[in-house]
Nucleic acid binder design. Structure first.
Lengths: 207, 207
DNA sequence: TTTTAGTTTAACCAACTGGTCAAAAGTAAA
DNA sequence: TTTACTTTTGACCAGTTGGTTAAACTAAAA
């Protein structure tokens, strides 16, 4: 019997996970070094193996933590009871915020996806991440009602994901390439967050 | 004085580059093993170092080769003399084809981008890759003429890139997640190639 | 045939990597 | 203080990695 539900504020385990998240996302599974993670956490390397038996274990712990975040934030909105347009607005703003706070996440996933696609797919399956049925249904309904243009729900979903995720994914590069010509990239992204949802909703409305 | 302009059809050097391209794109710089590249090329590991002095050299050779392809294909279309709408259509179909043939490329770039953003940005700068001025100008003109909606050229460009690149980038994952529900993913992508340009053009036309 | 230059190989090496272990240091109840 | 335990550490190890080297092979030139 334990007294408190385990308050893991700044426990060593949390320190390690935080450091690992940082290093894994910068260097990927293959490029990350256990020593670097230990340094980042300010502890001994052997302690990593005391808490998480192997590098792969540590990696999985980090990864599942991140998948949980996606699950909560991403599918939370898309499966909610909101009407379609509010949902789309909420998705773009909420998801953009979430991605900017975890800007390493998409690159991290793409990185590992290249190394072992099957493994990554299974991880997503295990986490129960799938096309949100509620959203798919809503799109079909709105198409049938004639409120939005004739469009395959899956294509619409892919468009939403593309428009929201890619800019964050390629941000460092876009920043380097565009910033010379255009002013501040962050400002560009702020403007995007405001204008993108309205443009997108407009693009699927019937004329 | 050499007789022929160096016909490097199946020379050892070409064999190595081809093998390296394959392995680097699967595993990334850090994950790739010189031995694996040698095996893939069917040669001895020492021979790699005979042709390309180091792993980094080999990596750069592969990378510049790929950047050249992007430069030719991507900026070739966007900087051409075509009118805006033809250009957009050409971009989506041509770029999608190109990406599907080189489906490892985006992931490869994102991967290395995470490891060392500055390095990647400089590579792109050196290769002269930048927002295509011709396209930017055309968009501004069409906005002014009132032919398309009020939109920042840079946002429009980002939308185009997002919609074209992301699905290829995430293809293995989308395939695994969507395929269970929807039929063939490749069929979905074929449909996308046909419908995306028209939907996109429609989305920027004035109502 | 001999020479010469470029190509290919097996064997080797120093540095690094994930992982282990026994012992030390901390902790809290008895 | 003693005991029993968890946490933390430095030293170490076996396997792997990028890279080297000297010798063998190849074929055209002399």
């Amino acid at each position: 019997m334990e007294e408190v539900p385990k308050h893991k504020e700044n426990s060593t385990e949390e320190l390690i996970l935080k450091a690992a998240k940082l290093v894994f996302s910068r260097k990927g599974m293959a490029g990350a070094r256990m020593q670097e993670i230990a340094d980042e956490a300010g502890i001994n390397k052997a302690l990593l193996h005391y808490y998480f038996r192997s590098k792969e274990n540590l990696f999985n712990a980090v990864f599942y933590d991140l998948l949980g975040n996606i699950q909560k934030k991403f599918l939370g909105i898309l499966n909610s009871e909101m009407d379609l347009f509010s949902k789309i607005r909420n998705f773009f703003t909420g998801y953009t915020d979430f991605l900017q706070e975890n800007s390493f996440l998409p690159g991290f996933i793409i990185n590992e996806l290249n190394q072992d696609p099957e493994k990554m797919i299974n991880h997503f399956r295990d986490a129960g991440i799938k096309p949100p049925p509620k959203l798919i249904l809503q799109i079909k309904e709105e198409v049938q009602k004639g409120n939005i243009i004739q469009i395959d729900p899956m294509q619409l979903l892919m468009n939403m994901l593309s428009l929201a995720i890619f800019p964050v994914l390629a941000a460092p590069l876009l920043k380097g390439i565009l910033e010379a010509k255009e002013g501040d990239f962050d400002q560009l992204m702020e403007k995007r967050k405001r204008e993108l949802p309205e443009w997108f909703i407009n693009s699927i409305m019937k004329k």
